[in-house]
Computed example of a mutant assay.
Amino acid sequence: MSVKLQTTAAASKGLRKQRAVAKVNHSRVQKSRQLITTFPDYPLISSTPLRYNVQLNQQLTSVQQAYDYLIKLESQLSHLYSIIDQEKDLNVIQQQANTLFSLLLQRTTLSAGTVDRQLKIVLAGSAKVNFFSDEFDKLLQQSAGETLLFSLTGQKEEMIGLKLPEQSLPKQRLLQLNKGLGRLGIHGRYNDHDQVVFTINESRWRRLNNHLKVKGEGHCYPENEFVLVQLRLESALEQQIQHIISDPSGAKSYLDQIKASLHQITQQLHWLAIHKKNVGNRITAMSTFPEAGTAILASHALFQQLSDDNISYSTLSQAISGQGNVRTATVKNLLLGYA
């Protein structure tokens, strides 16, 4: 009877041990699956897909999109300059100007936001536009204090209040204006010509231009109603081409502006070339086998090591498995350190 009880107890103990081992193994499998699904991140597919980190692939994609767009634009702009300079038929000039204007209107889509309105490269962050406001200029020059309430309508209404102190300097008033309008994504600054220039993300410009209203205390703005704030964009190639379309007979007067735009594009392409070279150097530095044939030599060397009697294959296998179980954050930090 006692033997039977001891046997049953031993069997029960063995079953509990097997369940505990199975639970541990299941936990390890779950952790392993989680590790596989969370790292590495899926890379961005560029025109030339690479197997490196996401940040590098984003840079490559942005560079390629900006380069492709600027090359197309340079070609069309050069052609327009040539036919205007040669005094070709006005219909030919107008047709080429229309083609170029269509390309400029598609800038955001074709360049994926990597080229701004002034044809400058934007590889990080969002493209911005500059604008002016005669009303804000007068507001900054006033000495009277005033509480202003701004309203930006559209899909949703945003309201911002701010107070301009009495007897304050224009730069002090601009600082107060920035504190309030900054919550709408607007920032003002003095340029090299001592003009106040305001900046906002290009994606928000259309809404701002059509829906920014303000009311005050009766000094600069009325007290009882909101009035639309008048804004105007900084001059750009887009506007000049519009003028040529409207009046092709005066196209020759825009040759200097077109030439300046071509120079701007050339500078940006030169900068892109330098950036592409730097990225290429980074890729070369990250390459495991930079020279042809080194991968085969490495595989032969590994074969020789595994064939050596002094080296235990099981030990090597355990070491490799151990590398696979390193925490995700550690692996990412190591990769970023070599990037």
Rank of each mutant, 00 (worst) to 15 (best):
Y338F: 14
A144S: 15
Q242A: 06
M286N: 09
Y81S: 12
K23S: 11
T8L: 14
Q64F: 11
N310P: 01
L123P: 00
A9M: 12
Q323M: 15
Q257S: 09
E223P: 00
Q264L: 06
I245E: 02
S203H: 01
G250M: 06
A301V: 13
L269V: 02
S151M: 07
I84H: 06
Q76T: 07
T284C: 06
D308A: 15
Q34C: 07
D309K: 13
L119V: 02
L177C: 04
Q94P: 07
K163W: 07
I320W: 13
Q176W: 09
S317P: 05
Q239V: 06
I186Y: 00
D116M: 01
S314A: 15
Q6A: 08
L334S: 12
Q55V: 10
T8E: 11
E74L: 05
K171P: 03
H187Q: 09
T284M: 11
A97K: 01
I45M: 14
Q65N: 15
N53S: 12
K156W: 05
S249C: 00
Q118R: 02
N53G: 07
I241R: 04
V92S: 11
D194H: 06
K128D: 04
Q268E: 10
V122F: 04
K163T: 14
K128Q: 12
R206S: 14
K156D: 11
T328I: 14
R107V: 04
I36C: 05
L5C: 01
Q240S: 05
N201P: 03
Y254C: 02
E87M: 08
F226R: 01
Q155T: 10
K23A: 14
A251P: 03
T315L: 13
G280T: 05
K215M: 00
A112V: 04
L110A: 05
Q86G: 07
L175F: 11
D85G: 10
E234W: 00
L164H: 01
K332C: 04
A260T: 07
P165A: 09
E223K: 07
A329N: 11
F131E: 01
T328A: 10
S235N: 08
L177H: 00
Q323E: 15
L100W: 06
K252Y: 12
L255I: 12
L231K: 02
D116F: 04
P43G: 04
Q59D: 15
L35F: 13
Q172M: 09
Y221G: 02
Q305S: 10
E225D: 04
T199G: 01
V331S: 08
H26Y: 11
V214G: 03
I71P: 06
L233S: 01
Q76D: 14
H211A: 05
Q34M: 14
S203V: 03
K332L: 14
L50Y: 09
S287W: 03
S46W: 00
Q195V: 02
Q267Y: 04
R183V: 05
P222M: 02
S32P: 00
L105M: 09
K252W: 09
